[in-house]
Each structure stands twice: as C-alpha cells, then as structure tokens.
C-alpha cells in the first residue's frame, strides 16, 4: 500500500514495504507503518526482530534493499546531513570511549547537529543526574545511556529516534525519561522508540507496533491492547459448591483458565478474563464474596500471545538483560 500523499504531510515517518538483507539473509521482509507527527510511537519485539535495523535505515546508517522511506517529508537516503540535524538518535548499543569528558563530547555532537540552546545540556544532565565532567570511558552503563539521551534531546529535534532508551536506567531515571518524552510530545516533537518489553513502551507510547522476525505483526493503540488484554481474577465466596460456582463462571464471556477449589464452606476460584468486566460483575454480585482480586490487564501477556510465544521459553518479557546480539545483525 503506497503512502497516501495527503497522509504523508501529517506523518513524521512513513515506512513502506521495507526490505533489508544482510548478505543472503533477509532480516526485514516488507515492513510498513506510519507515525503521525507529534505522536509517540513504540516498536516492540524480541531481540533480533529487526527494530534496530528499521531505525538505522531511517538514519541512513544502513540502506534498504527495497521499499520507500520518508522521514520528515524526505528520503533519508538522499536528503543528506540537513535532515539528520532535525533528528535526535540514540543507538541501541552506545559506545563512548576515549579520554574526553561528557561535556566536551556533547559539545562535539552539538557542533555536528542542530543548534543547542544555552543551558540546555546542563538542564538535561541535572534532570537525569549525570556528571558531565567525568571521562566518558569511566561512566557506568546507565550514565553512558544518560549521556546518549542528552545527546539525542539537546537540540530539541523534530523527531527523536530512540533505540531501547531505558536500557540500563534505574526506575527513577526511567520515570524522568518518560517525563522528557511527554514534554517533547507537548512541544510538538515526534518520538519513535523501541523496546523488547512492552512495559517500557506502554507508559509513553500512543501507538505500538509489534515486530517479529522482520515483520510487523500488528500496529495498535495502547488502549486497544489494553482492551484486548487478559486480566487475572481471583475470589473466594461462601455458601456455594465448587460445581455451581464453576458453572456460573463458565457462562461469563471471555473466561478462561478456570480453576475452582473448595475452601471452607465455600470455594476459592481463579480465572483469566479476556473480555469486558461488566458480565463478570453481574455474576459476582449474586455471590457472597469474602475476597476479590481483579488485576490490571497484563499487556505483556497479550503481547506475548501476539508474538506467538509462550511465557517461559525465554523469549519474551522474562529475558531482560539476557542475550543482546552484537550490532548490525542483532536487534
């Protein structure tokens, strides 16, 4: 489906039928998606799915074999340095070596990117708790990541392309990062970020694309993922037999994984709910509940179902910090 020209003007990024091969190995098999200007768009997928490859194509670090890319209205392959000045990029694996302080390194990147407002670098560094006067090679992974974020945000680019931005950050700094993303959005900037776990993306993103084995499985809003997501329900009720309770619950649409155990003079019951809450509540209201837990929807679980992988095979939300393949052929 070619990008609609009317649409193109309102889109910060349009990717159409993107194919990328490394040698004979095809790693992207025709990826298409669009990102509205001023939105926050997340792409999630397991390591090796092709997230980093898509992002590198947007920056013209690697070149597609087929398909069209439009970034801020231009083809990154031919637009040249002027386009990249309007983008802030955080690579998936950040290597900062050399005997140079963070401040001097950022000043160098400011020289080869868009103009940076005075005081902007210090303000960002202070928010993230980064010491700019230390040599970069002595920084911890988390602090290098902060330096990478300052580098991406400092010139207030129209588009931010952030590959695994929260990797290595502690939870407090992750929250600060989310605030920075929201501010960027309020400022009219577009944010494209990736992660291999949904929980990092869901708080920031309006829309999420799920990428697996070089294909987009789905593009959905976080809200619609949430609607389709599975909740866990547990309750105990008095004055009812296990068989009756089981029969009652089995009649509720979307109930699965139903387990009923006798407990005292009543029952203990756990199940998953994949649909609306209201029908369940109507049934529950007829019972003498002694306890009730209705959990928040677990997006991770619903996404894993879309991946087509089962939790526990080490290929989903449980492998944070696990295998991270080397650049390029990796994510």
């Amino acid at each position: 489906m070619p990008p609609d020209p009317d649409n193109a003007a309102s889109q910060a990024i349009t990717v159409d039928s993107l194919v990328k091969k490394f040698g004979s190995r095809e790693v992207l098999h025709g990826v298409s998606f669009g990102i509205e200007k001023g939105s926050v768009f997340g792409v999630i997928g397991p390591n090796g799915a092709g997230k980093t490859t898509v992002m590198r194509c947007l920056l013209d670090i690697i070149r597609p074999n087929a398909g069209t890319l439009t970034v801020l209205g231009q083809n990154p392959r031919t637009a040249g340095p002027a386009l990249r000045r309007r983008i802030g990029y955080l690579p998936g694996e950040l290597f900062l070596e050399g005997r140079i302080t963070g401040r001097r390194l950022l000043s160098h990147y400011a020289d080869i990117s868009g103009p940076v407002r005075p005081g902007r670098v210090d303000a960002l560094a202070e928010r993230l708790g980064l010491d700019l006067d230390r040599h970069t090679r002595k920084l911890s992974k988390g602090n290098k990541q902060k330096l990478g974020l300052v580098q991406a945000f400092m010139h207030d680019p129209e588009l931010l392309v952030l590959d695994e931005p929260t990797s290595g950050l502690d939870p407090l700094v992750q929250q600060e990062f989310l605030t920075m993303v929201r501010e960027a959005q309020a400022n009219g900037q577009t944010v494209f970020l990736s992660s291999h776990v949904l929980s990092e993306v869901q708080q920031a993103a309006d829309q999420v694309a799920i990428l697996r084995d070089g294909r987009i499985i789905t593009v959905a809003t976080v809200d619609s993922l949430r609607e389709g997501a599975v909740r866990h329900v547990r309750f105990t009720a008095a004055g009812i037999s296990a068989a009756d309770a089981g029969a009652l619950l089995a009649g509720v649409p979307g109930i699965g994984h139903l387990e009923v155990l006798p407990a005292g003079d009543g029952v203990g019951l756990s199940a998953t709910l994949g649909g609306a809450i209201q029908p369940l509540l109507r049934v529950l209201a007829t019972l003498q509940l002694t306890d009730l837990v209705l959990e928040e929807p677990d997006l991770e679980e619903s996404v894993l179902e879309l991946y087509g992988t089962i939790r526990g095979n080490g290929n989903g939300g449980t492998n944070r910090g696990g295998r991270r393949s080397r650049k390029g052929h990796g994510a």
Binding site: L59, I61, P81, R84, Y89, P91, L94, F95, E97, K327
Partner: peptide
Amino acid sequence: ESGQLELTLAHGVT
C-alpha cells in the same frame, strides 16, 4: 568497530 561511527553518522555530517 568500536560502535562510535554510527552515532557520528547519525548527525549532520556526510
């Protein structure tokens, strides 16, 4: 090889 060229090329240089 050290991974730093990628970030430089992502900026406004040819």
